[in-house]
């Protein structure tokens, strides 16, 4: 089974394109196909932990950006996952539902709305100049928070595209909580 066409829209292949390593370390990055590339694996592991632990944004804010990105990329696995530290930080499924819909939903708190706008800008039109977004970000987010937002998007957008490219993605998955792989 490869690419399937459905009324002109492509769907994600359900057949994995590589065999993951035969390891069972309990670390979902090491045990995934990413574990096949020895030169990059330690850096993926270190960057993953740094994204969650070494920046000023809350786990809930990081998770909202990650989920908005997952919808853009169409990564079913990324959409199904909830990081437990974000749930513990107060992330609600109501908020997830709001950021998962196209456009900007009325009623989103201003800070979360700006996260959504930033993700959309990063994914859809990074070369466009958006003076209003920049002004609003400067009012609501510190410089370190804005750098964190950009770097977490650099990480999650690349990661989710990689996951989709490797194949093996089902059409749907149930919601599941995971921990940051350490």
């Amino acid at each position: 089974m490869g690419l399937e066409l459905d009324e002109g829209r492509s769907t994600v292949t359900t057949k994995g394109r590589v065999n993951s390593p035969q390891s069972d370390t309990g670390n979902l990055i090491k045990d995934s196909a990413l574990g096949l590339v020895p030169e990059t694996l330690p850096h993926y592991l270190d960057l993953t932990v740094a994204i969650w632990d070494a920046g000023p944004l809350s786990p809930s804010d990081i998770e909202l950006a990650r989920l908005r990105n997952a919808n853009h990329v169409g990564c079913v696995m990324c959409q199904a996952v909830r990081y437990d530290i974000a749930v513990a930080d107060g992330l609600t499924e109501d908020l997830v539902d709001q950021v998962s819909k196209q456009g900007i939903q009325a009623g989103l708190p201003e800070r979360q709305e700006l996260i959504v706008r930033f993700v959309d800008w990063y994914v859809l039109s990074p070369s466009a100049h958006d003076a209003d977004l920049k002004r609003c970000l400067n009012e609501q987010f510190s410089e370190a928070e804005q750098v964190h937002l950009a770097l977490l998007m650099a990480y999650f957008n690349g990661f989710s595209r990689c996951a989709v490219s490797l194949g093996g993605m089902p059409d749907s998955m149930p919601r599941m909580e995971i921990s940051v792989p350490r």
Binding site: R17, V18, A33, L34, L36, V37, E39, T40, Y44, Y122, P126, A150, L151, M153, A154, Y155, N157, G158, F159, R161, C162, S165, L166
Partner: peptide, 18 residues
């Protein structure tokens, strides 16, 4: 090599966007 390439594309794309 295939895995390394799709990893690289994600990171290169990210660096260009940054």
């Amino acid at each position: 090599g295939f895995v390394a390439l799709v990893q690289a594309l994600g990171v290169f794309d990210a660096m260009i966007r940054l």
